[in-house]
Design a binder for these strands. Structure first.
Length: 103
DNA sequence: GTTGTGACTACCA
DNA sequence: ATGGTAGCCACAA
């Protein structure tokens, strides 16, 4: 995965997150070999088309929360998608971060 | 070249 | 706990 552009690697890594599990922006960046680029992961996901098959909703922040303001509809949409996969919430925080990368 | 910008994070009061 | 902030750096314009 070394010669690809960062955004392409991000797509690949996000695509590998198993259903029902989640990863943080920081994890994604680290896995891509770019520690410290958590923000850019978000910037990249933002550019995805709405009909994208990428499981962008399985990416959350380091606090275990959805990165959108809870008032927004994007937040609701993401939460719904996750709950549909069996991801449980406690308040606005996700119950468990079970996803780990094992290179 | 340079500048502005984050779907973030770690750290500290 | 919890809120504020400085650091982060690839990318687009």
């Amino acid at each position: 995965m070394k010669h690809l552009k960062l955004n392409q690697m991000i797509w690949q890594v996000v695509a590998l997150i198993p259903e029902g599990k989640v990863a943080t922006y920081g994890q994604i960046a680290r896995i891509c070999g770019y520690p410290g680029h958590a923000r850019y992961v978000g910037t990249t996901l933002k550019q995805l088309p709405d009909d994208s098959e990428l499981p962008w909703h399985r990416v959350i922040n380091a606090k275990g929360e959805i990165a959108f303001p809870p008032a927004g509809d994007a937040y609701q949409k993401q939460k719904l998608l996750l709950e549909k996969e069996g991801v449980r919430f406690q308040g606005n925080k996700i119950k468990l971060l079970v996803y780990r990368w094992q290179p």
